[in-house]
Design a protein around this nucleic acid. Structure first.
Lengths: 227, 227
DNA sequence: ACCTGAACACCGTTCAAGT
DNA sequence: ACCTGAACACCGTTCAAGT
């Protein structure tokens, strides 16, 4: 009954930046999945269609948000200070995980959404990769191996973030049903199985990280001997 | 104008199994995201609401599909034949990746969707984990380490599948824009960077797998010496 | 007990205006 | 050039029937 009166906005009173900031705000109060065009419009006090003047689809808006997310993410990544290659790897991938685990919106945009990055994002990412690779090469790795090492640890770290994010969104089965399920096994040989082996915690992450570094140490020695 | 006549179905002509099979068929022709209740109903030639008699929400239907997907997945996992622990790990995780990379619907259900499994699925999974862990323990690993090793390789393999799936769904930026982006870096020290380091291919997967095994070998020797 | 269409509140997007 | 509401085709889910 009360007419949904809303003042017509002045020309130029909407900017792409305002839309992007509003989108981040809204995603933060809910979740990235909760971000819809009508809700965003309401949040910005703008007609729904007005957003389409600046972003020709929701996907294009999300791409822009992703680019901004990467900028914010890399802005938070501290510069490398370690001297030895293994300390550098630890520092880098621990930081990587810490930052994205602490910000669900950034995690959803940088890790969960897509692999189609903008040119700017690729530049940012590649520069960071190079930094790490360079240190590895300086300290005796071949360029080839250094890249593979980075790639493997990157996949591992993103795998952790991905699984941890799924758990935060959907939860895990309650411990009781889990215990019953494990009890149903014919030969539960090792009590440790009852622990959530499919879940990632700090110690799990650390084990994989240290183990990879151990493998790389052996490889480095072998590569050095070859020359 | 032509009245949308559809015969009323007989009582008992719809079964949960038929719904599930229809859902798998439909997801296969499109994608899991393309599976909607109206489309599924049309595919089954059933009223939309009828599905809700057997599954009280789409989420419950998806949970049932996930349980079935895990059954199919484990049905395809070959029994372990390797003798040495490292061969067993290779065999297991290569098979894991191969099967889920070859079936997008299974991958979406088992890897991408959720971590909230049914009791049956947990039993299936835990039994498989135990099989691997037991072999590691027989050959000199502590139960603790064996679990951590499994967990790390599982996270790594699922990370690969996750990233590969994202690429299949959304694609990656075209090589040209990528090359331009890399060229924009101030000091592109290593030409290898131009290669898609964020992408996962067979050789990338193998490197991480072998490297983890290398790390475990060192750890095993150390653990043996301690005793 | 089982099957059904109409209806509701949502979504992304387009159209045809208004200023 | 920029902002807008109405409208469209979709979605998941509920309701109030029908048999």
């Amino acid at each position: 009954m009360p007419a949904p009166v809303r003042q017509r906005r002045a020309r130029g009173s909407i900017t792409p930046e305002a839309v992007i900031n509003g989108a981040f705000e809204l995603a933060k109060t809910e979740t990235l999945d909760g971000l819809s065009m009508p809700r965003l419009a309401r949040h910005l006090d703008v007609g729904v269609t007005s957003i389409y003047w600046y972003f020709k689809s929701k996907d294009e808006l999300l791409d822009t948000l992703t680019a901004e997310a990467f900028r914010r993410f890399y802005g938070q990544m501290p510069p490398l200070t370690g001297r030895r290659w293994d300390d550098v790897l630890r520092e880098f991938f621990r930081g990587f995980r810490r930052i994205l685990r602490g910000d669900d919106v950034l995690c959803d945009l940088c890790i969960m959404r897509t692999m189609r990055h903008t040119e700017e994002t690729i530049t940012l990412t590649t520069a960071r990769i190079e930094e790490v690779v360079e240190i590895l090469v300086e300290q005796g790795f071949s360029a080839e191996t250094a890249h593979e090492a980075y790639s493997a640890l990157s996949v591992y770290t993103r795998g952790c973030l991905f699984i941890e994010r799924l758990i935060r969104v959907h939860g895990i089965p309650d411990p009781q049903s889990r215990a019953r399920a494990v009890a149903a096994i014919s030969a539960p040989a090792y009590p440790g199985v009852t622990r959530l082996t499919t879940m990632v915690e700090d110690e799990n992450f650390e084990f994989g990280l240290e183990n990879a570094i151990r493998g790389l140490r052996t490889l480095r020695t072998a590569e050095k001997r070859e020359r």
